[in-house]
Write a protein that binds this DNA or RNA. Sequence first.
DNA 1: CGGCACGCTGGAAACGATTACATGATCGGA
DNA 2: TCCGATCATGTAATCGTTTCCAGCGTGCCG
Lengths: 342, 342
Amino acid sequence: MVGIKDVARAAGLSVATVSRALNGQSAVSDGARAKVLSAAETLGYRPNVVARSLRTDRTRTIGLVISDVLNPYFTELARSVEEEARALGYSVIIGNADERADLEGHHVRSLMERRIDGLLVSPADGRSPTTLDAVSGPTPVVFVDRWIPGSDAPVVRSEGRGAIRDLVAHLYGLGHRRLAVITGPAATTTGRERVEAFRAALSEFGLSLSDSHVGSGDFQAESGRLATEAFLDLPERPDAVFANDNLMALGALDAIRDRGLRVPDDIALAAFDDIPWFPHTAPPITAIAQPTAELGRVAVRALAGLIAGEPATSTVLPAHLVVRRSCGEPDPSSPTGGATRE
Amino acid sequence: MVGIKDVARAAGLSVATVSRALNGQSAVSDGARAKVLSAAETLGYRPNVVARSLRTDRTRTIGLVISDVLNPYFTELARSVEEEARALGYSVIIGNADERADLEGHHVRSLMERRIDGLLVSPADGRSPTTLDAVSGPTPVVFVDRWIPGSDAPVVRSEGRGAIRDLVAHLYGLGHRRLAVITGPAATTTGRERVEAFRAALSEFGLSLSDSHVGSGDFQAESGRLATEAFLDLPERPDAVFANDNLMALGALDAIRDRGLRVPDDIALAAFDDIPWFPHTAPPITAIAQPTAELGRVAVRALAGLIAGEPATSTVLPAHLVVRRSCGEPDPSSPTGGATRE
DNA sequence: CGGCACGCTGGAAACGATTACATGATCGGA
DNA sequence: TCCGATCATGTAATCGTTTCCAGCGTGCCG
């Protein structure tokens, strides 16, 4: 492998000058620069970033730990993160926690050992000690989507409260009164917040949420199926189910279909997180859409700022309701209140 | 940051002994080992893998360059690759080429500069010079799913020929005679092979594929929509469309729905690559399923073998047809010939 | 004309680990 | 008792960069 020394020899200059010419830092004469550039070109020199990182203590790499790569929400997030990071000159290493605290710990630790310049994390478990250690360490950390309460890293997330209220209004308007929810893990902020907001919205409409109408899921499809089956076994089964993420909605759809029931005639269904497939399911699913790509971009910029020594900035972006047909045929004359209709 | 020197000082030993104790390479006395371990523990020592990699010239990292992270096929692949790599002690850096040759080049180059131990790549462009350089270089490379003909790196992929023949038989049995196909880019092996196999299967049934029934796509949803719109504008429109990947099938579904037509009554639809959403679309989509996770595992093992100096091994795994309802109600009495029915 | 500042360059010291080689201790066999 | 093998350990070189510092020439100003 051709190194900086080979370039120096070919150009008839010292390694110091070659390094300077290549990095354009301090002054190098035009003649020397030209010789270096042409030598590097003909030799096909590629810098060894490992050595460079050792010396500079910067890897120009950020880590992204997400809870589930198979979840389209997170892949879209990952994509926008990588895009923005690349634009800023960073590479991204993605760690997939699979909603498991131990895997999350593994990835956070492994990324730290790789001496990443900064970490973006969406904690699968709000109490992960490894992640907490990372936050209190010297490496900048930004939470995205989910966060760990009490830790002082900035958070970039979206606020679903308003959209959830719109959803409840929508359901109420269609005559649904017995509403149920499938939650995410209580260990995640999003898991807790969405059900809280749902409960609050219900009480605004004079409805209450009985314990039997709260199914606990883990943001994965299978848990959505199980929770829905439990709902369908109830003596008074709910007439609408709100799945707190897209995969659990998929599981719910499975369960409903397996019973030979139809959406929305027999039971209504809505989901948090909109994804490209929802317009195409049978029926198209009403969902709350987050500005996912924007979330990723903002998070990367916040992290880059932190790395550059700027002060931490948290951001909250609004989510909004997208009405489709899975809760019943919407009345075209009714106001949508910030919701999109498709 | 605490380094090996600090551990050495705390343990009252030299850095050499500490290194040996930590890596368990050569002989270290039990007493010394215990002292080192406890010192490392109390100091919270984490090795600097950057320094280690510089010295050993191994990063225990492999690169994975895929053509599109938003494609569920590739995310499933990425997931299984990461899982298997982790089991073998490797980390994975994923590069997303977004079906763009320049981005693919960027990622391959950037991964090489990071001195990854091996590269897994599914080329977006079968002629990418950067990727070709990588193959001829010293770093082991394994192609997965797609490959570059003529290069001598091993290939791990699945063979769709048999399943495509099953699909054509299925369509023929349902009475479809005017079949159309939406292809991937001719620059990809999968793009060419799938349409070739389709054409061959058609001629087996005495059918031919006119040029107007071949829509050229790029494996992304929008191209599927455009190709389908062109089909629907034809004086003799096809009665079945075979999209060569899942995203283009989604686009096709869009186009058909926008015209107010119904699947399969007005036009049949099938796709290459099965994904978790296909059972839930309206109607559920008949697709050819690859053993995606297995592909990822086998590819990682092949690459690890190559890194360890073992000879290269290519693998071909079979794909199979999964019959759903998007081509018409299947006759329950007809033989399925290796296909699954759902 | 002397001195100083400035621009360009090279030598050499880091960065934090691994590891070849040297050294000292211990032990067994002759 | 002495020698050589063996084992545990330490010293120092090394990986490929960046960067501090010193040196040297040149030009400008006093």
